[in-house]
């Protein structure tokens, strides 16, 4: 488990954005909104809207492959419509290596 400290509070839109890459569950009425993102075999992220830190839990066997993608999620987020094509290609490439590492070649 790692605590990621962010330079700015997390906007609500961030969790809608990362839902493109995994499953998001929300309890929006708790605090400013509790969100949990889960990308099976990769990592999960949980945190509150308006907070400046999130908790990230990695699957440790492939952590060296997936850590960079967490940073990409945070740094690529912009308000408004997003072009996900580049990030999706990256996700696909990492996903192939994660599957191979965990379950062997296809």
């Amino acid at each position: 488990m790692k605590e990621f400290l962010l330079s700015e509070p997390i906007p609500e839109g961030f969790f809608a954005y990362i839902e493109n890459f995994g499953k998001v569950e929300a309890l929006p009425n708790l605090g400013e909104g509790f969100y949990k993102f889960d990308k099976p075999d990769w990592f999960s992220i949980k945190g509150f809207v308006g907070d400046t830190s999130v908790e990230v839990r990695f699957k440790k066997e492939v952590m060296n492959l997936t850590t960079g993608f967490v940073y990409l999620l945070f740094t690529s987020y912009r308000e408004g419509p997003a072009d996900l094509s580049q990030l999706k290609r990256r996700e696909e490439a990492i996903g192939k290596r994660v599957r191979e590492h965990l379950y062997g070649p296809d």
């Binding site: 309890l27 708790l30 605090g31 509790f34 949990k36 949980k46 945190g47 509150f48 907070d51 908790e55």
Partner: peptide
């Protein structure tokens, strides 16, 4: 409907 670990997280943070 909510994992124990998430309850602990919410209790602490919120």
């Amino acid at each position: 409907g909510i994992e124990n670990d998430d309850v602990g997280f919410i209790l602490a943070r919120a």
